[in-house]
Design a protein around this nucleic acid. Structure first.
Lengths: 345, 345
DNA sequence: ATGAAAGCGCTAACAC
DNA sequence: GTGTTAGCGCTTTCAT
């Protein structure tokens, strides 16, 4: 059989002594077929080493068996986790995943979106970099938005982490340990994730009469290097110690920790840091980075489930799912309250 | 145009006032077409919002525009980097990437291999988990093997890191700093990567009259937890301090560092550790993990280039490319030699 | 340089 | 329950 031409359904049908369509029915587990015929066909397929041509299937039936996933960067630990969750789930639904990294570039995102559509994926899961108003070309096929940009598309299915709850988790944790007014290291200001984060922060601290203007805020890219630089600026601006920092991502928080050390300061004694992501790398620093963990894998898995629902025509109107965050306590935040009590005693 | 049926090449041809085939030629940049006609067709396509159906293209031409990538785990930092390298390169060649995680399971690998073949990818890049003798079904399409398993397929294109050179880099570095006989934490013994690693180790140390039997060796999975356990066993077996450990992966090395700390020992003073991977997470530990860095992205990129060469019919016989490793010096290895000199002085 | 026609491998109506 | 037939949208001879 090696080296010979690829077997088609016709070959299988011939060998099984049935018609093309009967073979097709047997191969696709159609119900209206006799057990005996099915067995014959399956045996023939097996013997021939037949492998269904999904291009042909997709062409005829409209079901290509593929889903598109367009994210900023597959090499970023957070997005890699999301991708893994999506992959596992897609496998369960019998779908393959076409994955693209837009690298936070609007232009690359556009190109990739075109690619997935041309590949005739059945649906697209997208973390949108271009956060402008809705692009009409996005509307005409099953699609699920993931991450913060989802808010811009209220009429679309979307799934993300519950930022409000996550921020509350972090802020409460800080507050319970005596850090009432943490500094913030936020992401790029033009990104939607930034306003969502600030809104959540404002919501929490507003109740305590603190507005974001009262807080020291520095901006950073989602890299440790940039986080380190931002922390440097905070240290310049805020000579008071001890001090606490809430970083919008773990990588940034980790960078902040390096800056702290580089200045001869100790984390958590002089500087407390809390991250936002919950990636594995944060468990390796000393101290480990206490962080709010986003439900990365679940986001990937859920987005696929929602997409399949759309594809199969269940789910009439747009759903918005927001998955809870968890706090991973490690050692990067000091407990000022306990310290004070000990001192008194 | 919204909501209406998807535009086909026939629609484009009609609007441009040419035949289907002329439109097809214009759209695929065929040379034998007048500039004027091409322009007309392109405009029509643009106006209609036409998007080429790659399923149909693939079906007719045999070029689906897709490549398959089957790796152990996209959420593993090393493999995520490989995937990113492959992705960027695939984009350049106008190909999309179908990515699967086998999770080190032979069964899942088999299933995924079937999936990519059914999707009619033009070629497959594979890190083989099942390391038995050659599977005949792998031979009949363009394929490049990546990682250590490649050695089992001498008649296939393959690309990986130069383990011998990497081990030499690590061993030499250790030796120069007075660590003449490091302990080893190796990966699962049944995996081919293990024998390759041990062979390289044997090659280096043989020259110094040291056989692997003289070395303390512990086995570990590619996780920090498992590495931590393995380090615990080493510490039990080897009471002598200071001591050096060469770990076969960064995640394992990082785990070893945690075990060291947990025992109240100091890295690098009591225990020196060197890793093998060069992932970002290793830069966050204290001390940072000195490690041999494998050329992960380059492996991904090169594998795609080789695959495209195969697909396009260049490259008659199997090539084996092995990319050099680099040493990333951080702080996890002590310098016994200098320490001794200082003492003397 | 362009058009007509065939057909890639499959599924979905429609017969029987 | 099974066979027949007609395409899905495109590329590719083969004419012209």
């Amino acid at each position: 059989m090696r080296g010979s031409r690829r077997q088609t359904i016709v070959d299988v049908a011939q060998r099984a002594g049935v018609s093309k369509s009967t073979a097709a029915r047997a191969l696709s587990n159609a119900p209206e077929i006799s057990t005996e015929t099915r067995k014959k066909v399956l045996e023939a397929a097996q013997a021939l080493g037949y492998e269904r041509n999904h291009l042909a299937v997709g062409m005829r039936s409209g079901r290509s068996g593929m889903l598109g996933l367009v994210i900023p960067d597959i090499a970023n630990p957070f997005w890699a986790e999301v991708a893994r969750g999506a992959q596992d789930r897609a496998e369960i639904h019998g779908r393959a995943l076409l994955i693209f990294s837009s690298d936070w570039s609007v232009e690359r995102e556009r190109v990739h979106l075109t690619s997935v559509r041309q590949a005739r994926v059945e649906g697209i899961i997208l973390n949108r970099v271009a956060e402008r108003q809705q692009d009409s070309r996005l509307a005409d096929m099953p699609m699920v938005m993931i991450g913060s940009s989802a808010a811009l598309f209220p009429d679309m299915d979307n799934v993300g982490s519950n930022i409000e709850q996550g921020v509350r988790l972090a802020a409460e944790y800080l507050r319970n340990r005596g850090h009432l007014q943490p500094c913030l290291i936020v992401g790029p200001r033009q990104r939607l994730a930034h306003s969502r984060f600030m809104h959540a922060v404002g919501g929490y601290y507003g109740a305590y009469g603190i507005t974001p203007d009262n807080l020291i805020v520095e901006e950073s890219d989602y890299t440790p290097e940039s986080g380190e630089a931002a922390m440097g600026r905070i240290l310049d601006r805020a000579p008071k110690r001890p001090l606490a920092v809430l970083a919008v991502s773990d990588l940034i928080g980790l960078g902040a920790m390096m800056a702290t050390r580089r200045r001869g300061l100790d984390c958590p004694r002089d500087v407390s840091i809390i991250g936002f992501d919950g990636i594995q790398a944060s468990s390796f620093s000393t101290p480990g980075l206490t962080a709010v963990q986003k439900p990365s894998r679940a986001i990937g898995a859920t987005s696929v489930d929602m997409l399949i629902d759309q594809i199969e025509g269940r789910n009439d109107e747009a759903r918005s799912i927001s998955l809870s965050c968890k706090l991973i306590e490690r050692g990067s935040v000091s407990d000022l309250v306990r310290a004070a009590q000990v001192e008194v005693a």
